[in-house]
Design a binder for these strands. Sequence first.
DNA 1: TATGAATGAGCATTCATTCAT
DNA 2: CATGAATGAATGCTCATTCAT
Lengths: 196, 196, 196, 196
Amino acid sequence: MCPRSAEQFEQIKDERRRALLRAARVVFGRKGFAAAKIADIAAQAGMSHGLVYHYYPEKESLFAATVEASEEGWDVLVALTRAQPGTPWERLVYLCGQMIAGLREEPEHLLMTVHVHAEGASPGLRDVLRRFRQRVLGDVEAMIREGQRAGEITQGPPAELTRALVAMVQGLAINRLVEPDAALPPLDVVLRILRS
Amino acid sequence: MCPRSAEQFEQIKDERRRALLRAARVVFGRKGFAAAKIADIAAQAGMSHGLVYHYYPEKESLFAATVEASEEGWDVLVALTRAQPGTPWERLVYLCGQMIAGLREEPEHLLMTVHVHAEGASPGLRDVLRRFRQRVLGDVEAMIREGQRAGEITQGPPAELTRALVAMVQGLAINRLVEPDAALPPLDVVLRILRS
Amino acid sequence: MCPRSAEQFEQIKDERRRALLRAARVVFGRKGFAAAKIADIAAQAGMSHGLVYHYYPEKESLFAATVEASEEGWDVLVALTRAQPGTPWERLVYLCGQMIAGLREEPEHLLMTVHVHAEGASPGLRDVLRRFRQRVLGDVEAMIREGQRAGEITQGPPAELTRALVAMVQGLAINRLVEPDAALPPLDVVLRILRS
Amino acid sequence: MCPRSAEQFEQIKDERRRALLRAARVVFGRKGFAAAKIADIAAQAGMSHGLVYHYYPEKESLFAATVEASEEGWDVLVALTRAQPGTPWERLVYLCGQMIAGLREEPEHLLMTVHVHAEGASPGLRDVLRRFRQRVLGDVEAMIREGQRAGEITQGPPAELTRALVAMVQGLAINRLVEPDAALPPLDVVLRILRS
DNA sequence: TATGAATGAGCATTCATTCAT
DNA sequence: CATGAATGAATGCTCATTCAT
């Protein structure tokens, strides 16, 4: 008759879910899907392992949700980038700067696409990861094309430039995880790929 | 019952071991340490899973041996590179060319250092991987320093340039695994990082 | 906060309890003790699973209560039967007719004694079920003895005739659950067991 | 090179599999699908729980195999029955006699079809059980029809007579499990259903 | 050596039960 | 009284590892 109100429940669920996704991103990012234990993630999120299953019915769907959350984070970053004033080149500088800064705080963020390779994942997971990767590549490639049209970026095939840029950022994410104390290269080194 | 000469035995043993390491590199490279099953590796090597334990007493030592084999491959490549005629820059071009070519055929090769991160591995494994990574970074950094002394490479801190270069190659290895059909960027894009 | 009169509370409580027992009989009857989930029963009864524990402190006591309710239903049926006019045989016809009719509407009713066997249940549950079964067997046997004394029923050992009759009714209950659309055999076929 | 021969392996597997199925029949028969633990079955079969999964990949497939083995046993009994000399009635006497005798030794045998009801089982299991039940009903009904043609069996609808007979045998199987010491009714009581 | 049956520790998942609101 | 979030013991299942042959 007088239980918690529906909104209260929603609020609790939302907070917990957020905490869970944050924990999952960290643990999955560091260990990969197979090595990450639900108990690890639950502990990191400060809840019992049983509760994880109130929010996601299986490890796989938790992983998928984690990837999707990363995807949303990426979308926000892209939107912010597009809203920046200045030339295409200046926007790319902003985007890469944010990515490198993100690596410093949470290298797991961009690692989701790295951990589950071809045979290691169920088809469902593979699709989710592939979609994320394609979105990142597509967004970056579009910006590179703009820069090329503006004459600010070298004229090679944009797909290859894109892959080189994204590869470096992901490689740096790995480096960050393995050697958290090593200095990341400055932005202009990273962006030199795109200069003639 | 099954009489053979001692040499034949030795030869069989050696072939088997080599096949095992090759299989292990492929499977560990694709799936990572935790997701790779001994049975997968044995099947890929064309032997029963029981036999794996005649060569390596545990999964961890098989993994360590796999990393060490990759390390030896790297050492050979470095030796070949040092033996190349020409300027330091020309040698770096050779080295990177070989690495990119290697990715085409066997992207797993350079992935060994990617899969086992901080918390995911036993201390022993972490050390093996760290040593491999340090060796790669050390060798590349030495060559970059030479190029800088020769005035062929931009003057930034060599450690950061090294990390950027290695990160990109590893990122490309991941890209190769996930999208085997995508074109890799040409050598001059990769090496542009090192140019002023 | 939620003021109601004491009687209203009592009434609500009683209705809820009745709904719960009905739901429990259906779900326990269909799935058995182990496979029935408290959440299923709660859903069937239209309440939250937490509320179930306000009425019965454990799954086992809910099950026991369900069996006891079935037992009471049986007692009522036996009393009605005894109150019937006519010969012992006519009363048996009435009893079996009611049982068969009951199967049509709610085959779960007589299944309680079927689902929990020797090793599957805690000693407490086993006792409850055994008592129910003994009561049914005892009542039916008494009526068969009467019929035998009246010369209306064949002269075999009454315990065996009883078991045959009860076995058939329970078997038909199972049949009803598995094939709800199959026709049940007519009463005279069932009762033929008792005829010479 | 000189391991166990393929036949030896086959033989071992066959024996183990048989022991496993026997144990599974007993445990599933007594407790039902949900309450039966793989560990129980393994212990009853004298093996570790892990080994169970070498023979059947999941609990469900072990259950299905158990039902299928019971089905084969039934087919053998039917074939033996058909090979009996005498009238249709005499063959039915033989069949029911064997079933009742079977109950004495292993009441679990005929219980497979009892334990998993409508909502408690996955669709796959339900199908397997339904098929078994249909086969039993079909075989018995065919024999009852023969007896009716020979004028040895009462003229009611054969489907209903069949259900009554099978229901009684299953009911007796339950009785046997619950009260292993109670006397089973004699054959002529059971078969009285089919007499006018 | 080589095989695959066998074991059991470890992890994903379920669900009875508790409890704050 | 009523709700559903939260807990953790129990159980299905996996897979590294051992071992008889």
